[in-house]
Nucleic acid binder design. Structure first.
Lengths: 254, 254
DNA sequence: TAGTGGTCTAGACCACCAC
DNA sequence: TGGTGGTCTAGACCACTAC
């Protein structure tokens, strides 16, 4: 066992992280219980202590465990949060995880010259064109999210003609579109969050179930690839309370 | 130089992190420029490479730099975000950073037996009491945030009598109250975020500038100490757009 | 005092990129 | 091929907690 087969596609630390997470969710380490000491895990997995520490530190980042110097590492009693607003997850997956049947509807897809705001958001030159897509996501066939995406032409012009790009569903699986087709890994989004009422936003009427004063959570964001270049500008509108977003707020500074 | 004086209150990695951040904000390393290679930093600071890597990894977490294997580490072009919704910062500080004069107004402070919701939030037993405080924060004397806090008695009963606890301003400086007075470090909050309209929330009328249909960003959250125990339950109400919250949304999973 | 987590070192090898 | 970041090891010492 533990032969040195060069199957190191995934780092040792990540593999151990996966195993520990699995043990936690499966109740091998119940909430509140003590995780094996680092030296013991070191022997069990036959790796160095720093490799163990890397894995456990990631658990700690996610607040799945907390460490106490001189005492030990304990499994958190709080469950992993479900709808993390501060993580980027594809909506159909999110809707599914919330127990609804996900659906998707493309309202429009067009290639156009970016206006000033989009130019700035996406760091483009005047006259540059973008793909604009308007979508609605449904849960149990009820429309619950309205999204407008702007994607610069340079992101996909090597692999898609403009005509192909505006075919319905091209960007339905968002992450796949960017990562597999365009070879652009989405690193993170910088987002602004605010509350609005339906009356003040420009959304399709089908989204409005409860009148013009329905509260709407609005998220405007820019997505960046691994080398700091914006590759998508989005606006998301979440009317009502279909999904309550959760998140972990950490300490500012340090 | 670099004598081994035992002034290691702060880890070497953190000290180096501070220095690097300072250099970035001061323009020593301008946006888009290349950070010195790790081996060069290793020599400059006279530490091991892994210490350097720890510091640079934290820069990368904050998206202040991005690393490219085989190429180098580059300073991000995006500025550090200002109003991070996913970090916990005291409101007066936040208001000040946004260029307004911060103010504070305590509406009420009382000790009472926790209701069922609060009991569950704070993991208390029936009959346990809590300190309930209602506050308003102002910017340039305009009320902009309404907050209700519930703090279990056990958090401060060793250092404050109930009579002292309800004196105005006791918890004004929130972090100081918990960390210095109560010796309870706030580790993180688990929050839910949603949009509402003024009409549907129970907030003081002074907060309402623009009628009952004013959109309000509502944050309900529970704060935990370092050993996974809830020490505060809060509701925050942010009407209008006084402050636009920003945040970084990272990739879900891995 | 024994055991825990926190920090740091010196060195090694690898994968990747530009030349 | 040389330089970069990515990973991992073995070992050391420290600070803290519980006993």
């Amino acid at each position: 066992m533990n032969e040195k087969i060069p199957v190191r596609q995934v780092s040792l630390a990540d593999q151990i992280l996966e195993i520990l997470i699995e043990r936690i969710v499966n109740g091998v380490y119940p909430p509140g219980s003590k995780l094996s000491p680092e030296n013991q895990l070191r022997e069990e997995f036959n790796v160095s202590r720093s490799t163990i520490r890397t894995a456990v530190s990631r658990l700690e980042d996610r607040k799945l465990v907390h460490r106490q110097r001189g005492v030990g590492t304990y499994i958190s009693r709080q469950p992993n949060i479900s709808n993390p607003l501060n993580e980027f997850i594809e909506f159909p997956l999110l809707i599914k995880e919330n127990g609804y049947k996900p659906g998707y509807q493309e309202l429009s897809a067009e290639i156009l010259v970016a206006d000033e705001e989009i130019l700035e958001n996406l760091q483009l030159e005047p006259g540059d064109r973008v793909l604009k897509i308007r979508k609605i996501f449904t849960a149990n066939d009820d429309p619950i999210i309205y999204v407008i995406n702007h994607i610069p032409l340079w992101v996909f012009e090597d692999i898609l003609t403009p005509e192909e790009a505006i075919q319905p569903g091209t960007t339905e699986r968002f992450i796949e579109f960017f990562e597999v087709k365009c070879n652009q890994r989405i690193s993170h989004f910088i987002s602004t969050v605010k509350a609005e009422i339906f009356e003040n936003i420009d959304a399709p009427p089908s989204l409005m179930n409860d009148g013009p004063y329905t509260p709407v959570l609005v998220i405007n964001e820019i997505g960046y690839n691994g080398i700091d270049k914006p590759i998508v500008s989005s606006s998301e509108f979440h009317p009502d309370d279909w999904m309550t977003f959760k998140m972990m707020r950490r300490r500012g500074k340090v």
